[in-house]
Design a protein around this nucleic acid. Structure first.
Lengths: 203, 203, 203, 203
DNA sequence: GATGAATGAGGTTTCATTCAT
DNA sequence: AATGAATGAAACCTCATTCAT
């Protein structure tokens, strides 16, 4: 294996261990020594691969963001022409997100809990990320309005936030592990999709 | 003023200062000395009113929880018999929540950001709180189903979470201060209520 | 005792302990813990009085500089009109410097040894200090030339450096403790003064 | 080239790089990695040629000492029979020393700054070296007294120290680079020699 | 009751040195 | 012989908490 790849592999190993430890103990309660101990390496080794403790959280979160981005990018916001198509798209995205978060619960916890208040800069980044995801969702809604399959008077910005909030709430269940099996996941996806498209009062 | 009340008043003062400081600098980045300095008291005095640093965050959060509870308790989940009545109720609750969070932005930030990952126990409490609020919302939904103005096949648990997620997302705007004036607030409340009752596709 | 004065007294105590420890073990080999242990205080206490390790060396050196300055300022460079007067002045200054350095050997060692290469900035400061002392000496020489009791063609800048170098060498003896008693001191002062005024070849 | 010689050549290369790096950054601020990087070698390689970090400073200083010794050994302390001859000798030695220190400023800095307080043992060695150089100078002075061209009552020990102090001060100028060109060097050598032989008051 | 000086556990980080490749 | 990944001792420094005044 080329040394460059080996380094990358090591970074990944350490990042994984860090993610799990952060998720288990919390970012602040985790010492570099805890991460190193989990891997059975000297804690000095950590600093060969990451600048400092912040750096690894940043790295781990960028990974999460990338993977979230991959799921979102797997669909084209302008590809749908009917509500049914869009709804199918939403289900696919929802299942992708659930898959991601339930397959690696540490990621969910990092994203929803540990990164939020780790420090001021992370907080801001987290809030920025929410805004960014709202923008993505808004693009889908805009497509619906443009195509005429969503009401022209839909408040896109507010609705995008609200839709994301629903998904957020659903995924949060993954943090507590209460969306583990396929049936449960299906229930969440269906429930949220229904609410999203027809509301609680809709049929 | 009786000494007991004086003590209570002092606790409140310290708690307020702490809340603002936590919101500004973050829980971990805030030192006891920072809080004391803001009040112009010796930092040893702090410990006459609170056991430790955790204790004050706990106290502040319990205040927030109490005030949130007050808003929610201002309505009766079983009092409504029609969708219109329930919708009016939701608007009232939403406006109460927005009022609370925008009138004291520090509270919003504490609730949404600082308390989330302060430490493992707070995280758990935060997740518990979400569950508790879902239970409250579920009671409203259950009432609707029982009364027949909401569909019988509504997945109450999932929907309650999703509804709260929408509200959560809306209130989050308050953290960034983008829901300051009355018009903006109205827009959020209306947008979210519409989505909640008729979905994005509904008229 | 007013608290301000108490703080000053404590700083002095810590500075003294630091000076001795630096002199005994060397600046880099000395840990904050060593200084604290010598005083029987917790090492955290150190940081109440000094920002960090560099800070205390800076403080101690500024003290040394101040005391050196006091000795030099005790004479007036322009007050003498004859070689004999100037020579008497030199003897007085020399004795003052010897007194200072032999009464507190730690000071001598700090000045000549520990501060020199502590870090790059200290090195530069040390070199600057040498230049500054040369300027002072030059003022005396200039007075001599102006008054006509020193040769008009004296290279003042070079001579000032050289004179200081002689004194430097003499005081260095104090570092090793070989100029402890009064007789020994007298020998150094006389020897250097003779060399300074008439050279090795002079009568 | 025989392997033994090759090793010696490599040691020299590393020592040169170390000397420059120490001079530029300071002994303590210099890491083995810095030296290795300058040479474009792996920092593990360093340890094939030197036992440890101290070892290389020791080696570099021994080189300096050797070269200083070469300059001093180029003259015979007992060869002179008149003041004029001795004075010429002093000028030659002085020029040799200036030549050495200005041609390689790193050496000057190492000798005067970095080695002084590197650690306790180096400090002692540095003080020892001063004593040793004083002994050499004393031999010249003793010769002058024995031959009758220096006063019989000259305090040889003190004067030797003082003379070296003057030279020390002069060479120090090289550290700051203010004795770079030939004219400047001549000025220093002449100024110091004059002071040494006839004092500031002498003609 | 109020204070702030004192404390030291605890955490981060560096870097000289080793050693398997 | 050369390398650089791994190591952990060792140092610095912060800050929540205690407690004598």
């Amino acid at each position: 294996m080329p040394p460059e790849e080996l380094t990358e592999r090591r970074r990944r190993e350490i990042a994984d261990a860090a993610a799990i430890t952060f998720a288990e103990q919390g970012y602040h309660a985790t010492g570099i020594a805890d991460i190193a101990r989990r891997l059975g390496i000297g804690h000095g080794t950590f600093y060969r691969y990451f600048k400092n403790k912040r750096d690894i959280l940043k790295f781990v979160l960028s990974e999460v963001t990338r993977r979230l981005g991959d799921v979102l990018a797997s669909e084209d916001p302008t590809a749908t022409t009917t509500v049914e198509e869009y709804r199918a798209q939403v289900v696919r995205i929802g299942e992708g997100l659930f898959e991601l978060f339930t397959s690696e619960p540490a990621i969910a916890r990092l994203f929803y809990v540990e990164s939020v208040g780790a420090d001021h800069e992370f907080s801001e980044q987290w809030l920025d990320a929410q805004a960014a995801y709202a923008t993505v969702t808004a693009r889908y809604l805009q497509n619906g309005v443009d195509r005429g399959f969503l009401p022209a008077d839909l408040d896109i910005e507010v609705s995008a936030r609200a839709v994301n909030g629903m998904i957020f709430a659903g995924l949060l269940a993954a943090v507590r592990g209460s969306a583990g099996d396929a049936a449960e996941r299906e229930r969440w996806v269906q429930g949220i999709t229904r609410l999203m498209f027809t509301g609680i009062a809709g049929g």
